[in-house]
Amino acid sequence: MIKLKCVAIDDEPLALDLIEEYISRFPYLQLVRSFEDAISGAEFLKSNPVDLLFVDINMPDITGIDLVRSLANKPIIIFTTAYKNFAFEGFELEALDYLLKPIDIARFTKAVEKALEFYNYKNNSSAEAAEESFYVYSEYRMVKINVAEIEYLESMEDYVKIHLAGQPKPVLTLMSLKKALEKLPADKFKRIHRSYIIAVSKVRSIHNRKLKLGDAELPIGESYTESVRGWARNF
């Protein structure tokens, strides 16, 4: 059985005790060490790589953000916080999730199940697995995107909106459309405009340089017209 090596860091003893107790309930989690002192925890992590780190954001000596930023080899990160309307500079750290104190077991379970899934994803190098899903950072956490659910991707300056079938709200992530296309199987996704990539299987009709899929009607860019004609012959 896979065991994720974990470290927990929190300056509040009761919060740390609760995380330790929760970790003990999951056979695929192994608590290596826990620390009430963030600086000691950071020093331990620099010479002892682990798979998963639970770390409080607000600590008196150094913040959880600064602690994570100092690590050369970053584990999977789950931040914890006592503040509902928190603000932190952790976007570039790509934390898997964050937990609001007091942490309940149901929410903890959801986070660690996601951690195990993400660990397996990172350690599975098969091309088939890579085509099935990928992860993006959105709204302070890593979000799994199932390739089969994508209808189209829309460029919004430095961001990409990923529109998923059956989901009223797209996933917004900091990424270029070119980078997004690299994550997708080339035979199943095509660029039709400088602002749009579509899933070929979701296309309902093509007419007058307009393409319909789901509830959306998208323009076909002039420079993409010949390319669309090429793959649309098999449509």
Rank of each mutant, 00 (worst) to 15 (best):
L174R: 09
D158L: 11
L177T: 03
N146F: 14
M175N: 09
Q167E: 11
V160M: 09
Y159D: 00
Y159F: 14
G166M: 12
K179S: 11
Q167L: 13
Y159W: 01
V171P: 10
V171K: 11
P168Q: 14
E151M: 15
K169R: 11
L174G: 01
V160W: 00
T173G: 02
K178D: 01
E149T: 13
A180T: 03
Y152V: 07
A165R: 09
V171W: 06
A165F: 06
L177M: 06
K161P: 07
L164M: 15
L153A: 12
I150V: 10
S176D: 08
K161M: 13
Y152D: 02
A148Y: 00
E157P: 05
Y159E: 05
Q167D: 10
K169F: 02
V160T: 05
K183N: 00
K178T: 12
L172P: 04
A180M: 15
A180G: 04
T173W: 07
T173Q: 07
I145G: 05
Y152N: 08
M156L: 15
G166T: 06
P170G: 10
M156S: 13
L164Q: 12
K178E: 00
E157S: 14
D158Q: 11
H163I: 15
P170F: 07
L184F: 01
V160H: 01
L177C: 03
G166R: 09
N146S: 14
E157H: 14
S176N: 03
L181R: 09
E149A: 13
E149K: 13
V147A: 13
K183Q: 06
A148M: 04
K178A: 09
G166A: 13
P170C: 09
I150Q: 06
P168E: 14
I150A: 10
A180I: 03
